[in-house]
Design a protein around this nucleic acid. Sequence first.
DNA 1: GTTAGCACTCGATAGAATGGAGTGCCAAGA
DNA 2: TCTTGGCACTCCATTCTATCGAGTGCTAAC
Lengths: 332, 332
Amino acid sequence: MDKRKAAILRAVVDDYVQFAEPVGSSHLARVGGIQVSPATIRNEMNLLEHEGYLTQPHTSAGRIPTDKGYRYYVDTFVGDTDDSDITQFKSVDEFFTNAHGALAAMFSDTSRLLTNLTNYAAVVTGPSPETILIRSIQLVSLDPKKVLLLIVDSKGAVEKKILELASEIDESDLDLVSNILTKKLRGHPIGSECVPESTGNLPVDLLCATALESLKEFQGETESVYIEGASKVANAFDAVDTVRRVLATLEQHFLVVSLIRDVLSKGQKVAIGAELGIEPLAECSVVVSPYIVEGEQLGSIGLVGPTRMNYPKVLAAVNLVSTGLGKRLSEG
Amino acid sequence: MDKRKAAILRAVVDDYVQFAEPVGSSHLARVGGIQVSPATIRNEMNLLEHEGYLTQPHTSAGRIPTDKGYRYYVDTFVGDTDDSDITQFKSVDEFFTNAHGALAAMFSDTSRLLTNLTNYAAVVTGPSPETILIRSIQLVSLDPKKVLLLIVDSKGAVEKKILELASEIDESDLDLVSNILTKKLRGHPIGSECVPESTGNLPVDLLCATALESLKEFQGETESVYIEGASKVANAFDAVDTVRRVLATLEQHFLVVSLIRDVLSKGQKVAIGAELGIEPLAECSVVVSPYIVEGEQLGSIGLVGPTRMNYPKVLAAVNLVSTGLGKRLSEG
DNA sequence: GTTAGCACTCGATAGAATGGAGTGCCAAGA
DNA sequence: TCTTGGCACTCCATTCTATCGAGTGCTAAC
């Protein structure tokens, strides 16, 4: 395998990965960064084909890589990962420094349960931030510059997050701040605004501010929606573009949430086709139900499937799961 | 809307929901439970169409329900949910009486992170049961016949489950049993077999047995796999049957797990197409990486996409996430 | 070793022919 | 008046054919 052949193989893989179309010799000469004529490329491609790296879907088509071709590509060219690839993943770090909520697990499991029962896509929306009240706030030292922020809420659930500090902080100050914050925020909803107050003690004020800042971020997290089983729509529709259209819409979580809210606010349990008012979901229906915790409607669950869905079965499942979830959360 | 027309509408909806084919008059006369001739059904269908409940995809096809037709069906016939529908959902109860693991949330969130980074399907396999050791077992009374079983494991994670008892149990016996079980099981893996021993005290022995029985069930739960973003394959392939084939395979979790294990055991990070050895995934590739917790390989993460995937990007993402997960879990 | 030229291949696309499921309507029967 | 068998009609789905063109392999010239 000489250098030019390798370059051609690489260009074919790159191009095919991007466009999913067989790659022709003249196309490659134009855009592939290979500085020889199409005829030369054809000769090389021919060799590459005989060596098993490329193949043709049919005689008069361009080439696509074989498994062997991909294998060579991976073994030879991957590892050159330039940093630009890495930096676009900066969110990863952030993700792993934040622990995730306890309620979240319940909701996503519930969503999964519902999708398994019905074979349609299931949605569970968490409580809106206003309905969850803070009971107490604790700061726990992990190491001198790392503090674990714990929020115990009125449902007894615990949300936690790791704070990175700019400077070291004294153990005793942690308790102080915990007390200040708890006093200040007890009984307030988790996402509420709060202005830090000066105590005249700089490190304490600083920590207070950091903690309050980070508390704000929970607002976004608690206004939550869990969609599972989206892939089930692939079974519900024959046309692949319908499948894609519906999947794309389901990914817009805010749309799904407001859809469910709309249906519920009309006092309905079922919305059908055009009733949804969302063009891409014209061939879908939605079945919803709120779940009630301690007499209060905390959130809702819903189900998205094709208009030709099995309504009796789905309604039964949605009702069952919403009562189940309500009861479970009431127990605390 | 007279009774017969309603019956016909209902039959059309039922049939169309099941078979997704326009429903013809003679078909309905044969199997729809309507005891009149096709001609009569045709007349009725014609009326239903003019009233907006049915429509024809084209002149010489059968009828399918309109949104209005589904609406009438739901408003009129649903609620007759017979019990047989409900009883098939008995798993729901079971689901809500069992709290779910703390690690589980981490794994499924991680899986979701990875699928969002790459736009392919992501897999995270949890630690095998043997590597998680029991540290202590606590029983807490919820009400006289309900006991909460808590297992604290060597990673500090807490698994819990609610036990329903046949008869009431004394508070003091709970502590006794907690101690017996902790002594017996401390240092053992969570899924290990254990024979109850007689203490001569009947209620205690009974509780012991119940608890041990329920401990066994954690084995299945901890041998866990979290697959997110399966729906992304709809974007990766044009052919709808390829999409369905791949989705169906991804649903067989044990297959996916053993696939990932195979690749790792060969010391590879990438498996391509036929290398996977799974016919329905012949057009897929897999990128895997173990994650290391305290020097020990606890589990693995993987990514399933089309062979024509963006390998450099995916490899970077998988590496990043696996180190992130390992670090995060090491912190405990 | 590289390149232009050229005949050739074969899938993709469009258009025409065929078959059949299902309809609407009518007239006869209950 | 309601129901039913008969029948002409419609129009999609399927099959077949013809055409087009992207891309190839080969050859001969550079």
